[in-house]
Write a protein that binds this DNA or RNA. Structure first.
Lengths: 301, 301
DNA sequence: GGAATAGTGTCTGTGAGACAGTATCAA
DNA sequence: TTGATACTGTCTCACAGACACTATTCC
C-alpha cells in the first residue's frame, strides 16, 4: 500500500501517467446490446365460460437495412462511448416500450468474431419482462416495424455418446416464433461435454429461417434462463399486472415451464409469496376468484 | 423470406452492401476479459491425526504499471480483434495456469463508463475452477507477480427500508483476500429495490483497500454466483482431484457455502453423484476412508 | 341444472435435519 | 487404549405429488 505516489519504469506517478496516456490505435470491436423483451398475452376465447389462453411473447423488429434486410431481429443498438452498457440497454428498452421501470437482467455476452457480417461486434444481451397491460403503446410505433411473436420451445431429441474420458450429450431444441403474419423457426444444438471433471457447454445453430445474426442462439439462451429462474426466484411477478388471480399466475408458470402444474400444490407453494385482497373477478361464467397481489416482503434475498 | 436478393434504399443487395460497408469512425470502447480463477487449497496441520484444513483461494496478479501500480488485480487482458471473447478468456486462463481443459464460465459484463481511468473499457468477467493438484506450476512463474489469496466472505449487516410502493434492502458484504504476505479487504453494498413488481439489484463499493479497478465487485459477484451454483449443479467437482474422499468433498461444499453440513445428510444427497472405488486413504492416524470419483452420468441436464 | 373455474382436505412418499451409535485405523 | 475420522441407522418433520371432493358463479 504505497503512501508515496508510486512511480513506474518511466518515473511517472499515476497522475502523470494518466495525463500522458495514449490509448493507442489498435482496432477495437463495436459493442452492442440486444434486448429480449418478453411478455405474456391473452388470446380471445369464443366460449364465454372458458378462461383466455395465455402465451409467452417476444418482441422483434423487422430490419430496414442490410444485412438481413427485411428479416426479424431483436431490438438493440450500439453502446455509446459515453454511456454504460446498462444505460444503453435501458435506452433501447425504453425506446421500444415507452415505459420505464421494467425488470431487466443481463444475460450473456456474445463475442464470436464473425457474428456480424459487417464488422466485429460484441453484443451483450439483456432480458426484460413486461406486464402486457402496462404497455399502452402497441409495438410498431417505431419507424421500423415491430411485432410480438408467440414463443414455442420444443426439445426435439437428446442423444448421448460415451467418450474415452467422459461423455457428450447433444440436445436439439426447436424454437418457433409466430406472429400474426409471420413464422420464424430454427433449431439449436446444445452440446454438453464432460471430459474428466470438466464440463463444457456449446450452442450451435443447426438451421434457422427468418432470424438475423446469432439471435436464434440468444433466444434459446434467454428461454433456458427464464425457465431456470422461474423455479427459484420471483421473476414471474414481473410479467403480472398488479392484481391477478392464482389461476392466471399458475398459467404463466405453466407457459414458461412448458408443463402443467397441480393446482393444490401450486397454491401451497406460492401462498406466502402473494397477499389476498378483498377484490375478486366477476362476470366470468363460473365461480369468481379472489385477486391477489405480490408480497414484496417475501424472501428478500 | 426474400428469394430474390432484397435491395435497400440505395438499391444495393446484401452482397453489394457488405462490399461497400464502411464501419464508420465513431469512438469504440476497448473490450477486456477478467478471470476469477478459484481453487481449493489445503493448509498443513501440525497434528498428524487431524485432517488438513481447506480454504477457497483466488488468483491475483500484482500490477506492474499504472494505474493501480503495485496493487493487486484479477488476471486479464484485452480481447484481440481477431479472437472471440471466449478465446481471449481461455488464452488468459492458459497463460496464468499453464493447463488446458479447465472449467470456465462467463459471469457478467461490466460496462460502467469510468471503470478504467485510462479509457473506456468494457470488461467481461469469467470464473474458472481448478483442481489445485492439477496445477503443477505455482502462480508466479509469470513476469508479473501472481499469488493465491484465501477468500473470506462475510455478511456484515442487512437493513430494510419501506418505500411508498415497495421496499429496499441493503446488504453489506465484507470481502477479505489474504495471501502469505498481503491482505486486501473491501466492503460492497448490495442494494435490492422492489418498486411495484419490479426488482432491481445494484452493487457499489463502500470501501476498498488494495483492489484495482472495480475488481472488488467482480469478486463479490463471482462468490455469490459460485455459492448459488454449488447448490444446484455439479460445479464443485471441477475443484476436486480425480479421486477424493466424501469428507474432502464435504469440506469443499462447506468452505464455499460458508456453513457446516451434517455428514449423514450430505452423504445421502451426493450418493448418486459419485462412484465408490476400491481404493482408500492410508496412514492417516485414524480410520481410512474410501476414495470416490465423480459420476459423469449423473443428471446430464 | 350445467358448464366451467375456484378452492380445500388428505393420503402418501421422499428427502433433509438431527443425533446417537458403531467402525477402523495408527501411534 | 486413545484420539481422531469414517460411516450407518433411524426418528421426525416438512413438503410436493396425486386426486377426490366441495364451492360458486352466470347463463
Amino acid at each position: 500500500m504505497p503512501n508515496q505516489p508510486a512511480t513506474d519504469h518511466n518515473g511517472l506517478n499515476e497522475e502523470e501517467f494518466l495525463a500522458n496516456y495514449n490509448a493507442g490505435s489498435y482496432e477495437r470491436p463495436s459493442v452492442a446490446v440486444d434486448m429480449l423483451i418478453f411478455t405474456v398475452m391473452e388470446q380471445e376465447q369464443n366460449n364465454y365460460r372458458k378462461l383466455a389462453e395465455k402465451s409467452l411473447q417476444l418482441l422483434l423488429i423487422q430490419r430496414g437495412e442490410h444485412p438481413f434486410l427485411g428479416e426479424w431481429a431483436l431490438p438493440g443498438g450500439f453502446v455509446g462511448i459515453g454511456e454504460s452498457v446498462e444505460e444503453a440497454a435501458r435506452r433501447e428498452l425504453y425506446s421500444e416500450t415507452n415505459i420505464d421501470n421494467i425488470y431487466m437482467e443481463q444475460l450473456y455476452t456474445w463475442g464470436d468474431v464473425h457474428r456480424d457480417p459487417r464488422m466485429r461486434v460484441i453484443s451483450c444481451s439483456y432480458m426484460a419482462l413486461v406486464d402486457r397491460k402496462a404497455l399502452s403503446v402497441q409495438a410498431g410505433d417505431d419507424a421500423a416495424a415491430a411485432a410480438w411473436f408467440e414463443v414455442s420451445y420444443l426439445i426435439l431429441d437428446t442423444s448421448r455418446e460415451v467418450l474415452e474420458q467422459g461423455i457428450r450429450q447433444e440436445t436439439l431444441v426447436e424454437i418457433t416464433l409466430q406472429s400474426d403474419e409471420e413464422k420464424l423457426s430454427g433449431v439449436v444444438k446444445l452440446t454438453e461435454t464432460i471430459q474428466g471433471h470438466v464440463r463444457q457447454m456449446n450452442r450451435e445453430i443447426v438451421r434457422s429461417s427468418g432470424f438475423s445474426f446469432d439471435h436464434l442462439l440468444m433466444v434459446q439462451y434467454a428461454i433456458e434462463r427464464l425457465r431456470g429462474k422461474v423455479e427459484y426466484t420471483d421473476i414471474v411477478f414481473n410479467l403480472m399486472p398488479p392484481l391477478f388471480t392464482l389461476s392466471e399466475l399458475q398459467r404463466v408458470y405453466e407457459i414458461i415451464l412448458g408443463k402443467d402444474l397441480l393446482a393444490a400444490a401450486f397454491r401451497r407453494k406460492i401462498a406466502e409469496r402473494v397477499i389476498e385482497t378483498e377484490e375478486s373477478t366477476r362476470d366470468a361464467g363460473h365461480r369468481p376468484s379472489k385477486l391477489y397481489r405480490y408480497n414484496v416482503e417475501w424472501n428478500l434475498s
